[in-house]
Nucleic acid binder design. Structure first.
Lengths: 155, 155
DNA sequence: GGCAATTACATCGCATGCGATTAGATCGTA
DNA sequence: TACGATCTAATCGCATGCGATGTAATTGCC
């Protein structure tokens, strides 16, 4: 019998952890984080610091606001993280001249030097999944679409 | 040109945050967490506490070891979390009689009473994604497979 | 039986995430 | 042009995750 023939209550009745997409995403995200750890340890980065650097490797510079929108993380998460990257000499933080509310963030030369190694990590991850590259890309797009629809609903 | 015609280095060259499955999983997981928050707030649960309760709603009782394997979380994460659930009167914690190293964990009646509401949450999430139920299930399975292959590679 | 190795859980420290709140800058409008 | 509303970061508190380490119980091998 197809799940389409069941009421929400009947589906809830049979719901287990192993059928929940939230747990699949949660545990897969953590598994990928564990995969990255040895690589990121070599670079002295945590995973959230890594995705901040990914944006800077792509953009060169940005602002706290743009970074917050892109990563879907609030300033209360990013502020201490960016201060650590600044202390490590990988980024600079400075108030924007035109709008003092904005914080300009830029990668230093030392920060940009990590790009080559850092950008290989996702490629190595894709290889380790045993999926074809096309399969990984399709999965990535469907996950991003699902996330975007959820975020749109929340706003 | 297909990605199959590119070397890993060439792929890394073009790598951006929006092509990374790790970020799709990471941000989707957090988006789902945000979706759950109002529901879980009503029940007085956080998301990790919720997935612990999901196991207990399914199994009735378990051990720290089994929970750790199932959720892929270590005791250093689960111990304080379970103590909070115990303080809230939702679970009991006791040493196993046959093997004192093991910690038995069981849902109380108060804990089991949350099952009906809790099991609806993933159904509501699936509905909010705009996907068909079959689509969500397929995505869930592919993510779980990817995670399992990554975890197998790590061990 | 004796004892080193293993197992299971707990403790500690550090780095996120995020709700709630605050402070300062800018905007919009009377 | 005042001035309240809005916007952007930062600060604080709490709850994870997890590496490193400690401790007690059990296992395995002689």
């Amino acid at each position: 019998m197809s799940v389409n023939n069941l009421s929400p209550e009947e589906i809830a009745e049979q719901m287990t952890l192993d059928h929940m997409i939230c747990f699949a995403a949660y545990s897969a995200s953590q598994a990928m984080n564990r995969f990255y750890r040895p690589i990121l340890d070599e670079m002295g980065l945590t995973y959230p610091q890594f995705i901040v650097m990914m944006v800077l490797w792509e953009e060169g510079q940005t602002t706290m606001k743009a970074l917050s929108d892109r990563l879907m993380l609030e300033s209360n998460t990013l502020t201490p993280l960016l201060k650590k990257l600044e202390a490590a000499g990988l980024v600079t933080r400075a108030r924007n001249k035109d709008d003092e509310r904005l914080l300009d963030i830029a990668a230093t030369e030392k920060g940009m030097a990590l790009k080559r190694r850092g950008c290989m990590a996702p490629v190595e991850l894709a290889a380790a999944t045993g999926e074809t590259l096309e399969g990984v890309i399709e999965l990535q797009q469907r996950l991003a679409n699902l996330r975007n629809r959820l975020n749109a609903k929340a706003s």
